[in-house]
Structure formats: C-alpha cells, structure tokens
Amino acid sequence: MLLAEHVPMKEPRTKVGIVFVVDADASCRAGFKELFQSVGLEVRLYASGRDFLEDGIPDVASCLVLDVRLPETSGLKIQEELARAGIDTPIIFVTGHGDIQMAVRAMKAGAADFLTKPFRSQELLDAVFTAVQQDRGRRHTRQSYSTLRERFASLSTREREVATWVAAGDLNKQIAAKLGLSEVTVKVHRANAMRKMRAKSLADLVRMIAHFNN
C-alpha cells in the first residue's frame, strides 16, 4: 500500500461512519481496511467503480476514498456519475499519478480532498473524519428541514396565513384587519400554528416560517 507511514491510534474509536474504498490494487485495499478499522470506522472495499455503483450507498454518514485511475472507468467519471444521480457523499481522491490539473478538476467538482501517494496515514485519517463529520451534518440538516416541511404542511390555510403575517412582524390586530378576522381568532390560529410547528417561542416560529418565505 502506498502510504508513507502508519500512525497507530492510542485507543480505537467507536464506529462513527462508513468509508467506501474503491481501488484496483488489492494490497492498497487491504491497507486501507486495516487503517480505517483500527480507528473504529466500518469499511467497504471495491476493486472497481462499477462494483461500487452497483452496490449502492446506504443512508448513513459516510465518505468515499476513490482512486483516480481505475479499470473500466476513472475515478473522475465515478464522481460525475454520482453527481448526476444526486448522490453527494464526500469524495477523497487518492492517486499515485496525479497532477495539478486533475486535482483542480476534482476539487471544482466538489471533492472533499485530493491526496497524492505516498501520504501520511494521519493525513488520510484527518481527511476521512472531516468528510464523515461534514456528511453527518449535511444529513442532519436535511432531516431537520424535512421534518419542518412536514409540520408546515400540517397547518391549515388560515394557520399558514396567520403564521406568515406573524413572521413578517405584524401584530394580532393588524393581521385580524388584513384577514377579516377577530383578534381572538387570530390568536387561536397563531397558537395552533406554534403547537403544530412545535415552536418554543414566537421567535422560534418566525425562524421556522422564514425557511418557507425565502
């Protein structure tokens, strides 16, 4: 395996994500597996990009360690295919034959990092943990927004109207006049909106509604 050195960790970390490794060299795959498992990462190995694409990616925090030069199709082509499929798993390119133009192309297309062999084991581990953490954050944000969207969809038409005017800074009296309602009715709709959106405060409701008015 073309790693400059192996830096053992003092204590193995608990499993915090999956690292997919696509490398045509069996010795490299074995080396990557040993390294990543030593720090508590789950590892899945593939000899070709096609094998990886056919296997699919589970919906968990992960990253892809991808060799640039592969049989059948290049790592850069794999990156393009993933982008077209809407799969944004972070990619860390590794290669023994890289150049500046290749690195720039990969990074412009969204790669998390581009490492040229030989590199230090810790350098790769740092890149992998950073990528997995970023992927975890992205998934959390996406899930939070999906939950928020479901709550917003549960509001009645009136509740949405009232919540929108509240978010715009209008007082109950002003909203009542605009919608032809009584202030009491406006207060009821506002309370229902806060309950359904699970807003802890008026400011919280305003922040939530702002996501749908931008």
Rank of each mutant, 00 (worst) to 15 (best):
S74Q: 09
L45S: 09
Q134R: 12
M102P: 02
D204N: 13
F129N: 03
F52T: 01
V65I: 15
L181T: 14
R158H: 12
L124T: 08
P58F: 14
A85D: 13
V16L: 08
V128K: 03
N213Y: 12
M194Y: 10
T147Q: 14
Q134E: 10
N172V: 11
A4Q: 08
T141W: 08
T14C: 03
L202S: 13
Q133S: 13
R44A: 06
G137T: 06
L205T: 11
L124G: 07
F52D: 02
L35I: 04
A210M: 06
P118Y: 09
R195D: 07
D88I: 03
V184C: 05
A199Y: 09
V184P: 03
E81L: 15
R84Y: 10
L53N: 00
S182F: 13
C63Q: 07
A47T: 01
A4T: 04
S38P: 12
D170M: 13
F114L: 11
T14R: 04
E72P: 03
S144F: 04
H140R: 07
L70S: 02
K15E: 13
I87E: 08
V60F: 05
M197R: 09
V184R: 07
E42K: 06
S38F: 07
F20G: 00
C63T: 08
G137A: 06
E11K: 12
V132T: 00
Y46V: 02
I87W: 06
A30I: 09
M9S: 07
R138L: 08
A153D: 15
G180F: 10
K200L: 11
Q134W: 06
R50Y: 04
A191M: 06
L205H: 11
A168T: 11
A112M: 09
E159N: 08
T95L: 01
E72I: 10
N213M: 14
G75C: 10
I209E: 07
R142Q: 13
P90I: 02
E80Y: 12
D55R: 03
K200T: 07
T89A: 01
A103Y: 11
E42T: 05
S27Q: 13
R50D: 04
N214R: 11
M194K: 15
P58Q: 14
R69N: 06
G137E: 08
V68L: 14
F152L: 07
Q122I: 06
D99S: 15
R195P: 03
V16F: 12
V19Y: 00
E123Y: 02
T95M: 02
A193G: 08
F129G: 02
A24G: 04
E42Y: 06
L115G: 00
T73P: 06
L115Q: 01
R207T: 13
K117P: 09
M1D: 07
K15Q: 14
L70G: 01
V206K: 15
A168G: 11
L35R: 01
V39D: 05
A131R: 04
E34D: 12
D88V: 02
E159L: 08
H140W: 06
R29G: 01
V206W: 14
A103R: 15
Q174N: 10
L124C: 11
K187W: 12
A203I: 12
D51G: 09
R160M: 09
L115T: 00
T147A: 12
D204C: 13
Q37S: 10
H97E: 15
H97V: 14
